[in-house]
Design a protein around this nucleic acid. Sequence first.
RNA 1: GGAGCGUUAGCUCAAUUGGCAGAGCAGUUGACUCUUAAUCAGCGGGUUGUUGGUUCGAUUCCAACACGCUCCA
Length: 509
Amino acid sequence: MSETPASEPISSPSSTPPTRALHEQTVARLNSQAALFELGFATHPHSYAKTHSAAEVVTAHPTLEPGTHWQEQQYAVAGRIMLMRQMGKAAFANLQDESGDVQLFFSKNTLVTPEHFEAVKQLDLGDVIGVRGHAFVTKTGQLTLEVSEFTPLVKSLHPLPDKHHGLKDIETRSRMRYLDLMVSDDSRRTFVIRSRVVRYIRNFLDTLGFMEVEGPTLQAIAGGTEAKPFVTHHNALSHDFYLRIALELHLKRLLVGGFEKVFEIGRVYRNEGIDLTHNPEFTMLELYWAYVDYEAIMDLVEKLFSGLALEIFGSTTFEIDGKAVDWSAPFARVDYLGELNAKVPDLDFDPLELDQLRAFCDARYPQWKKVPDYKLLDKLFGEYVEPHCINPTFVMHHPTVISPLAKEHPSRAGITERFELFAMGFELCNAFSELNDAVDQRQRFEAQAARRDAGDDEAHPIDEDFLLALEYGMPPAGGLGIGIDRLIMLLADKRSIRDVLLFPLLRPH
RNA sequence: GGAGCGUUAGCUCAAUUGGCAGAGCAGUUGACUCUUAAUCAGCGGGUUGUUGGUUCGAUUCCAACACGCUCCA
């Protein structure tokens, strides 16, 4: 079937004079759009019946004997022109679609009409076109689509970033993500990995019988962790609401309700600064599993992460940032205080006394004078242990003082049934046997509320609604939280969270 | 909040002891029927982030501000 250039209903190119000054290169492109219209090509066709992807065309013909033609197999491919090499009566172009690239060959002899050949000269880098033709191998052995006819689908009114250097400025890459995706294979790869990781996790949990749910993002009290929330206002209820900072408290209500395996993958919002590893909105996975403790969660995490490595890298051992990482189970398991005592010079505390710790740190780390007592452990841990966990390592049994929502260890005072997984010096997840003693929970909330009254605006008021649910009895349960963005950073080998978020928060222009 | 670095053409980057602002890509005109970041010849394109100051002269020096990046708190 042959399409004549004018077969689509033709809409005339816009003749409305623009109100703002147009860049020289935009004018040139509007002119070439008008020239295409004069040649009989519609400016914005409604669809294009593509039959194959660029990658399918290339992989369908493994023979690379120069001069080979496959006339019998016709392809219709659509995508964006990324490179173009015109020479008199012939031209080569690289057409890019979601699957990859295919080289196109246009020539005066092989195009169906003289209008088509004239139209080739009006194609610009960045234009989206549909092409029909057959595959052949060039003199230099490259599989190429010989175009017999083509359809301009939409003109790019702006020039593409430099075809060799691409787009380097991280702000522009984030702000104009579509350009970044157009010109950067690496960026496309990152977001494909992101999608595969999330899909893998969903499938994995589905297979284990977990139910995916959705909690509210607008909450009367933002709880579940300590962070400053965003505030918004609901007009009809005439009440301020907070954007959620964690998924936890509503998922636990579902355990009270009788669901036994629930998880949510969703956005949480924290009103805090932006840096290499923080964006005000990011994605968390939280999971709660009734009638098990943290040991079962640890087994689940081990299976999940070694399976993920296999899924993404095809192996449980792979290299990140030049370092070989081994994701085969079982992961190393170390005790929080034991590891701290082993790694921090001169430290030897067990059980832990905050007073002792304060004195220890004041003597050695005067720059931490203003750090609250209960955060000193985290400081030491972040300094001496975390960066050295290259292979995945479970750090277990955190002190109660830094684990307000975890259940205490049955035989070790001041220690909780909790673990974190570290790899590549990164925290990947946090899990524990969940506190389900409503009285204890109330006391911990009251302590937090007291800190809030004392001026700590990361502490939250008592969530009576949640406490009431807990008082009806939440079965013993293990819970898990995973920061999806950081996981993607690790798997895609990206240093900045902005590189794994399609649209990170930016100051409005 | 503090410190350091940065902001030059659509993109990637030069340059100036303070003296006409430069290249490659992209654009445009022309040549070219097997190119690969095509090539060759010609031509356009700049409020050097903003506002002040010093100076005969500022894109360069100074100050403030804006925005960005990095590190620290």
